[in-house]
Simulated scan of single mutants.
Amino acid sequence: MAWIILIVSGMLEAVWATALGKSEGFSKLGPSILFVVALIASMVGLAWAMRTLPIGTSYAVWVGIGATLTVAYAMITGTEAVSLLKILLLLGLVGCIVGLKLAH
């Protein structure tokens, strides 16, 4: 169960990171509210998962999921350029995240 919570929390990290960018310095209400809600939920889930999973592994997986999804979303929506190198690096990051889970 802790792994599922950790994965969802990592996904919420991508939500709050994207909302933070779209809030334009907290000048837009909707993205600002989404940022706060997703941030709190993401942190609560991370903290809960860390009760039973190793701290280093939990944090690395959480950040890796969030970073991967944030960059992928930005590339899909066109706010960030797509390149083969970026895609390969993201796949490598996903491989490392899976490796950390398997090594646990």
Rank of each mutant, 00 (worst) to 15 (best):
L85P: 09
L93P: 02
G99C: 09
K101H: 01
I76Y: 14
L90F: 03
T79H: 03
L90M: 15
L85R: 08
L91E: 10
K101L: 00
L88D: 05
L91T: 11
L84C: 03
A72V: 08
C96F: 15
G99V: 04
T77Q: 14
V82L: 05
C96I: 10
Y73H: 11
M75R: 02
G92P: 08
M75G: 02
G78M: 07
L90E: 01
V94T: 03
I87L: 12
L69D: 11
L69E: 12
A72E: 02
L90V: 00
V98N: 02
G95R: 03
G95Q: 00
L89M: 08
V94G: 00
I76M: 14
K86R: 15
V82Q: 04
S83H: 08
L100S: 01
L69P: 06
L84M: 07
C96Y: 14
A74R: 06
V82F: 13
L93E: 00
T70R: 11
I87N: 05
K86P: 07
A72Y: 09
I87D: 03
S83T: 02
K101C: 04
A74I: 05
G92Q: 12
V71I: 13
Y73K: 15
E80M: 10
L91Y: 15
L69W: 01
G92S: 13
S83A: 06
L85A: 14
V82G: 01
A74V: 04
L89Y: 01
T68S: 15
A72F: 06
L85H: 13
L85G: 12
T79W: 14
T70F: 14
K86M: 12
K101N: 03
V94Y: 05
K86E: 06
I97P: 10
L88C: 06
C96T: 12
V71E: 12
A81M: 02
L85Y: 05
T79E: 11
L100I: 05
Y73Q: 10
I87T: 13
M75Q: 02
K86D: 05
L90C: 11
L93R: 02
L85K: 09
G95L: 07
L84S: 13
G92R: 13
A74W: 00
L100E: 09
T70H: 04
V98I: 07
C96P: 03
G78R: 04
T70K: 14
L85N: 07
I87R: 04
V71G: 08
L69F: 04
V82W: 07
L91A: 14
A74C: 05
M75W: 01
C96S: 09
T79F: 08
L84E: 05
A81N: 08
G78N: 08
V98Q: 03
I87W: 09
K101A: 01
K86T: 04
I97V: 13
L85I: 07
E80A: 09
I97Y: 14
V71W: 13
M75K: 02
I97W: 12
S83L: 03
L88W: 01
G99M: 01
I87F: 11
V94Q: 01
Y73G: 12
L85M: 07
M75Y: 04
M75V: 05
V82C: 02
G99L: 06
L88F: 09
Y73F: 15
G78D: 04
T70A: 13
T68I: 15
V98R: 01
L91F: 14
S83D: 05
Y73N: 13
K101Q: 02
L89I: 08
K86W: 12
T68F: 13
Y73S: 06
G95C: 07
